[in-house]
Design a protein around this nucleic acid. Structure first.
Length: 761
DNA sequence: GTGGGATCGGTTTTT
DNA sequence: CCGATCCCAC
């Protein structure tokens, strides 16, 4: 181990590394060496004889945990491989493999990804004869997920007056039934969704004191990265695990909290101080990453947020170049401009492709950059979007594998029972599921005893053959390695042949993907086992493989040495740094997003997101926007993002059609600012259930506001009384500008508005 | 039960 | 503009 590792740290960092015992909070600004501190801290523990099996280190992304493991391995050697380090989801899945039987799940439980769980929700909605236009699966899914993360169980939901009245207002009174049935069906399928991995861990720890005791004593040191992004559920779990030794370290930055939309709450940081009063706090405020100009821009921006822990980020780096703001006429031109700029910087300076990142708000924005980069022959890589494991052909083969070791997995069954085509159609599948529901059984139970049920003779035979086939796979799973079994399944089901016969470009690609998946399984099987001293045996079975890869959502293989420009969402960029960063699509309703513009918060999360984006840059930062953009084939006009106006003029340099003052400061607050929109996106109102709320509440029943006109006085559910200043938009999407004495001017989308008309003068 | 053509609706962000 | 879904002819 490198003896001098402590010398590389500044004083605060060193304190954060060597104070190993007791509760510690490390508040780490962007570029302050957070990862370094965390890895050195773990290495330091290892060097002082702490058993790697007793260290639990939780991160949010696979990428973060993988890079941290590598860095620790460099300092502390192969001990690093025995650490319990990974994402919340992967670590808890591993624990549940040992303990899930206690709450009635098989050790080989299936993990449902977002697609699986949405499909199940869809089936339930259909079964109940509900209209999936009103009960949109994605909305329901979102709501269920929010409930789970706030520890609101189906029983609680059915009793919660606020949630029920909200459902009544949104015309979705059956949400509670769907939620309950969804949980029931997952349980019967032996399946957990992403949220369940946390929730079931919580349940096991709560219901079985001996299990809690086991982990409390096993994990003598607990470390959490990106603590600002933990939700209530995650915090409850780690709090109880750390309760005995209280050697808990949390690292985070409230200014970089960008996951409130999935339940992350700043309360965790505040509660942490009360839950662990002996807390030592270290504030890492020196930025080693960016130029003075970039740091100043970030500071001035985040200063606009009211809610934050006070800290002063500074740097001793060079002043650096000005931050460039670029106005382009269209999304295509924006793409072209960025590609040209990359070419120029590569030619004139020493930059390589790897030095560049293009960051956007939504995945859909990548198109114009892909096109322009391809035209310039610049190699690039897009992060996010569809991962390898979400491809249809991959999911199909995986479904066979899942079904072989867990026959009850309903989603896997539906996926492959008629693929490749074997003559069991939708009607038969529906019948199986309905029989199962009527008798309180699982679809597989019906299929196993298919001759007792009313199906066509031919169908019975077909289903019977399918059942026999799946059972034969299971029998083989005890004799063959995961790889051999997978290969066997791919061939005997004719799935491989089916793809091989497809000679289209896509068909060939699909065939290759299957080969690649098989290779992956082979690698997994042949990988060395981490020797363990307790029950957490590292196994190479098919079950272990499936659970592992279900959590691999990102872009598969990390091709570190490949020299390419990186394209990703700002969310995905958190924790990363690049020499040159282009933050693109900086238009109102894109960044900040349209969603956030019409919601009640003060765009603080969007601002933090922008903060994250600009603080990724080391030397050069470009901020671009387009005044028009294609959307659904229509042209949509945009205005520069309000965030551009929040940056200090003195460090900006402005390109584009107009001079700086007009480029950024045009057309705000004008009356017809949104009139250029083509079709506005229709969206259901989303309200996240928070933890059970207190106090009596009367349901707020909004009026029909179709006749709203300028000058009327209204009452809004959240903002109170106000006066309508202006109306815009069309018949289907009307937006009112309303002045609320307590909140100022707000733009409210009438179709979602909870408004009452008080006086119509 | 299957496949092709018409029609409709939709873009945050992630494990 | 693109995918998912619906509807109808085999």
């Amino acid at each position: 181990m490198n003896k001098n590792y402590l010398d590389e740290l500044n004083e605060v960092q060193r304190g954060a590394v060597i104070n190993t015992d007791g509760p510690v909070m490390i508040v780490a600004g962007p570029g302050s060496g957070k990862t370094r501190v965390l890895t050195y801290r773990i290495a330091h523990l290892l060097q002082h004889g702490v058993n790697p099996f007793s260290i639990l280190a939780l991160t949010f992304t696979n990428k973060a945990s993988e890079s941290m493991r590598q860095r620790i391995e460099k300092i502390a050697g192969t001990n690093a491989r025995s650490l319990f380090m990974g994402t919340f989801h992967s670590i808890f899945a591993r624990l549940l493999r040992v303990d899930a039987q206690k709450i009635g799940y098989p050790a080989n439980f299936t993990i449902y990804d977002t697609e699986d769980s949405k499909s199940l929700i869809k089936t339930i909605i259909k079964e109940k004869g509900l209209d999936d236009k009103i009960y949109k699966p994605s909305t329901i899914q979102w709501r269920i997920s929010a409930c789970k993360n706030a520890l609101v169980f189906p029983e609680d939901y059915a009793k919660d007056a606020d949630l029920l009245s909200e459902d009544r207002d949104t015309r979705r009174p059956e949400t509670k039934t769907i939620y309950a049935e969804y949980c029931n069906r997952c349980f019967k399928s032996g399946a957990m969704d992403f949220d369940d991995l946390l929730l079931k861990t919580y349940e096991v720890l709560n219901r079985f004191p001996e299990v809690l005791y086991k982990y409390q004593h096993k994990f003598k040191y607990v470390l959490i990265d990106e603590f600002q992004d933990t939700n209530q559920l995650q915090y409850s779990i780690i709090k109880s695990i750390a309760a005995v030794h209280e050697n808990i370290t949390v690292v985070g930055d409230d200014a970089q909290s960008i996951y409130a939309f999935r339940g992350a709450t700043i309360d965790n940081i505040l509660n942490f101080e009360t839950d662990f009063p002996d807390l030592k706090v270290f504030k890492l405020e020196q930025n080693y990453r960016s130029t003075k100009n970039i740091v100043q821009a970030a500071n001035e921006l985040i200063y606009k947020n009211k809610n934050q822990i006070k800290k002063e980020i500074w740097t001793s780096n060079d002043q650096g170049e000005l931050i460039e703001v670029v106005r382009t006429a269209s999304d295509n031109e924006e793409g072209r401009w960025v590609a040209d700029s990359i070419m120029e910087l590569k030619n004139r300076k020493h930059y390589k492709n790897n030095d560049f990142a293009i960051l956007y708000r939504t995945n859909a924005q990548s198109r114009s950059f892909e096109e322009s980069l391809r035209r310039h022959n610049i190699s690039y890589k897009i992060y996010g979007g569809m991962s390898f494991y979400q491809r249809k052909e991959i999911k199909d083969l995986l479904a066979y594998l899942k079904l072989s070791i867990n026959h009850y997995d309903e989603e896997a069954m539906k996926r492959v029972i008629n693929y490749p085509v074997r003559g069991i159609g939708q009607t038969s599948i529906d019948k199986i599921i309905i029989f199962a529901a009527n008798e309180g059984k699982r679809p597989w139970d019906i299929m196993e005893n298919i001759f007792q049920y009313d199906f066509q003779t031919r169908t019975k035979t077909l289903i019977h053959e399918f059942v026999l086939m799946v059972k034969s796979f299971q029998a083989l799973s005890t004799q063959k390695t995961a790889f051999d079994l997978a290969t066997h399944i791919a061939t005997t089901t004719k799935l491989l042949a089916d793809l091989y016969n497809d000679k289209t470009v896509e068909g060939v690609a699909r065939y290759e993907n299957i080969q690649e998946l098989l290779n992956g399984i082979k690698e997994f099987v042949e990988e060395d086992l981490v020797v363990s001293e307790d029950e957490f045996v590292d196994d190479r079975t098919l079950g272990a493989y499936l659970q592992n890869i279900s959590l691999l959502t990102g872009t598969e293989k990390e091709t570190e040495n490949e020299d390419c420009v990186k394209l990703m969402t700002t969310h995905a960029a958190k924790g990363l740094e690049f020499a040159v960063v282009y933050v693109v699509g900086l238009e109102e309703s894109l960044f900040p997003s349209a969603q956030s513009l019409y919601s009640m918060d003060d765009l603080e999360e969007e601002r933090r997101l922008f903060y994250v984006a600009i603080t990724r840059a080391e030397t050069r930062l470009f901020l671009t926007y387009a005044t028009s953009r294609y959307k659904f084939g229509n042209v949509q006009f945009g205005e520069p993002s309000r965030f551009l106006k929040e940056l200090p003029d003195s460090i900006l340099s402005v390109h584009g059609e107009q001079n700086k003052s007009t480029a950024i400061k045009t057309s705000f607050g004008g009356t017809s600012s949104i009139s250029g929109l083509g079709k506005l996106v229709q969206r259901q109102p989303i309200s996240t259930p928070t933890a059970p709320r207190t106090g009596p509440s009367e349901p707020f029943v909004p009026d029909d506001v179709s006749g709203l006109t300028t000058g009327m006085e209204v009452k809004h559910e959240k903002f109170g009384d106000g006066k309508v200043l202006a109306l815009e938009g069309n018949a289907t999407n009307r937006i009112a500008t309303i002045f609320f004495p307590n909140f100022g001017e707000k733009k409210i989308m009438l179709k979602f508005a909870k408004l009452k008309i008080i006086r119509s003068t």
